[in-house]
Design a binder for these strands. Sequence first.
DNA 1: CCCCTTGATGTCAACGCTTTCATTACTATT
DNA 2: AATAGTAATGAAAGCGTTGACATCAAGGGG
Lengths: 341, 341
Amino acid sequence: MRATIRDVAKAAGVSTATVSRVLNKPDMVDPETMERVRAAMERMAYQPSAIARGLSAKRSDTLGLIVPGITDFFFNELYKGIDRASQQNGMKVLLYDSEHSRERALDGFSILGGYQVSGIIFTSKLVTEDYDPILQRVGIPVVLTLTQSEARTPLPSFRIDEVRAMFDVVAYLVTRGHQRIGMIAGRQWDDKTGELRLEGYRKGLRHFGIEYNEELVEYGQYRFDDGYQAMQRLLEKQPNFHMTALCTASDEMALGAIRCLNDNGLHVPEDISVVGFDDLPLARMITPRLTTVAQPFAEIGEAAVSWLVRAVGREPSPSEIGDYLLPHRLVERESVRALGS
Amino acid sequence: MRATIRDVAKAAGVSTATVSRVLNKPDMVDPETMERVRAAMERMAYQPSAIARGLSAKRSDTLGLIVPGITDFFFNELYKGIDRASQQNGMKVLLYDSEHSRERALDGFSILGGYQVSGIIFTSKLVTEDYDPILQRVGIPVVLTLTQSEARTPLPSFRIDEVRAMFDVVAYLVTRGHQRIGMIAGRQWDDKTGELRLEGYRKGLRHFGIEYNEELVEYGQYRFDDGYQAMQRLLEKQPNFHMTALCTASDEMALGAIRCLNDNGLHVPEDISVVGFDDLPLARMITPRLTTVAQPFAEIGEAAVSWLVRAVGREPSPSEIGDYLLPHRLVERESVRALGS
DNA sequence: CCCCTTGATGTCAACGCTTTCATTACTATT
DNA sequence: AATAGTAATGAAAGCGTTGACATCAAGGGG
């Protein structure tokens, strides 16, 4: 049986209150007593029960993280930031995978609530009005990362300016002499990101006086296979291939597209330029190294945690609840070719 | 304020014990009462406090997972298996990242212990004798995945037969006409896997009467950059390049090696064949698709959880504490070329 | 008609901690 | 010397559950 606070107290000849104090309010206890207690703890390998503490103090020093899928490639980087920041604030993270299901996502709030988490980070899926009841109910701060909210309950969100980012991609491509620019956009029932990025693409074209052409656009749900299939459709739609560059809504889809191109005897960037989105670690590992938009995942995670930590225990002012757009960055690598003049 | 069990009890006109029973031993309560209680819960959006339950029942229905690094590419697949199996057994998973530090790994046991986890899954790092004190102390079952133990405390481990796996790779290569086979092996202070895979490689060579040649072997710590650099050293060691095939101790290093080869104007598999290890999701995404050894990560995770669930609350018999070797599989793709005769 | 089961429910003491409030022994202030 | 602070500690009441035990009504066997 593990040692409890009572055992330590007895061993050190003090009350449990004092032991609790050396842990939580060290400056309230006499240095000498402190020493004795510390020694006792050491001796008995005392580890306070986070559970009991949580129950008593009504806070668990734990943050809940809801992600749609653990296997989404961006997860690791995001988590790294969250973990790092949590660590610094003495918090633990409880992970919940909603498996891309809206119901499970909703459940997540309750379940994490049951663990007395001090705050919840919700990731990647669009928050719609049907989240409102839960959101009202949880009673703890919630922040959004890599997504935003359409619900009534105001929620802060940490992400990049998607429209701007994709606009930048188009601009980059145009500057390199491309005119026939296609796109594999994101499409998912519960995700606004796809729309936004597509909007950025259209905006970019418009800005440079290029006509939007449906023929050059296909959709997928961000994963590799979606990218592959979308590329396939693109290839079929235009037998006499004349697209010179392709934007994608995710690195994974970019990879899929490239694979598909390769399978059809086309090469990147010689025959067609491809730009990814995310800057996953693997973007620099493949051949050709992928030119892509870097999302500051780790920073987003850290920012979300900081916000949460600041918000816990008090009503955040309206001015704090807004959209925090972190800077993205276009990372030039090898998958785009400048068209000779 | 969230509704507590007392609120529900009052609303339903029963005692808290009854409410607790409808949750935990439904067959002990009258259907009619049950209905009333259920309704009350529904109405008040009652969510039992996992914390309080944990304290009272002395079990938290939570498993602890210690990984060396969240960004290790195999993590996601392993976690998927763990999460799935946990779900099925009504368990949550608490994640702890040791950041490749031995001290932090040791801490992990205490911290997770503080959360009353019912069991701990320890991953990827070799367990040495200095873990013994903690191991003795935790008092909850611990299982190892993707690694093994050299400590006194007997611990079950779930992994593949590393030696055999690498032997198979060599055999595969030899069958395809390769004789000059190099290797980028794993090396890390606290990892036995590297050794084992190297042993398999040597064993393979020996079996086919090929002499082991240090010139053809380099080491890295499993990550992309390590692979890249190791390849670089290999290239420098033998200016007149005559290696026809390369085994690696991880897919990531294989990727690194391929990148390095590409940067030196060499092509895979035309100029040299490369075999990875792990079968990460990205192995099938790159060009050329990577031939590699598939580790059943998800299955390993599931098996570990099952074992834990079975072991909780009772002393597992010695016969249950052994090495569980799950089947690996060589996945043929495109990165190996059969040498013409 | 009484006693014993049985099933359904209630009572209450934990679980290991934190926190308020009370107590004690000093020290500084008048 | 009396009073008021102040610093260090202790006693005890929760926190929201669970689980052992007690209670009670209804039904069955003698």
